[in-house]
């Protein structure tokens, strides 16, 4: 449980200290057997892990996920909206919404974290701070 509590802090830390040198070393090691591996690695399209999502993009995509939920009135969706109070969702709907956000950003949100996400600000915060969000 303590590890779960530490997770957000660790994730933030990881995001703040990217390790291109490690990735380069790994690619370099591969290059010995495949001469073009390093060139390929360098020429690869930037993945979301390197070019982290902008906050604007996170907000837009989280808003879109909410608007597409069958029970949500799209006109009520704002970056400040609370799932229950503003959008009228119950806890089961909230599970659906949070899982749809997981899928949109290719994340798996542990239950302990997911249970805390009950509003757009918290959802946006979680995704924006997640180093693997893509």
């Amino acid at each position: 449980m303590a590890a779960a509590a530490l997770r957000p802090a660790i994730l933030r830390r990881i995001r703040l200290s990217p390790t291109p040198s490690l990735a380069l070393a790994a690619a370099g090691a591969g290059a010995s057997s495949h001469p073009h591996a390093l060139a390929r690695w360098l020429a690869r399209p930037m993945s979301s892990h390197d070019a982290h999502l902008t906050r604007e993009e996170v907000v837009d995509r989280v808003l879109d996920v909410l608007k597409s939920h069958p029970k949500v009135d799209p006109s009520k969706v704002t970056p400040e909206a609370h799932f229950e109070k503003d959008l009228g969702l119950d806890s089961l709907d909230t599970v659906e919404v949070v899982m749809a956000i997981e899928e949109e950003f290719k994340l798996e949100i542990p239950d302990m974290e997911a249970d805390k996400i009950d509003s757009l600000p918290l959802a946006i915060e979680y995704v924006a701070n997640h180093p693997m969000a893509g």
């Binding site: 806890s91 089961l92 599970v95 659906e96 899982m99 239950d111 997911a114 249970d115």
Partner: peptide, 12 residues
């Protein structure tokens, strides 16, 4: 409640 939500999540 958390158990129910966890079960729902498990199904999904």
């Amino acid at each position: 409640q958390k158990q129910v939500l966890a079960l729902y999540r498990g199904f999904l």
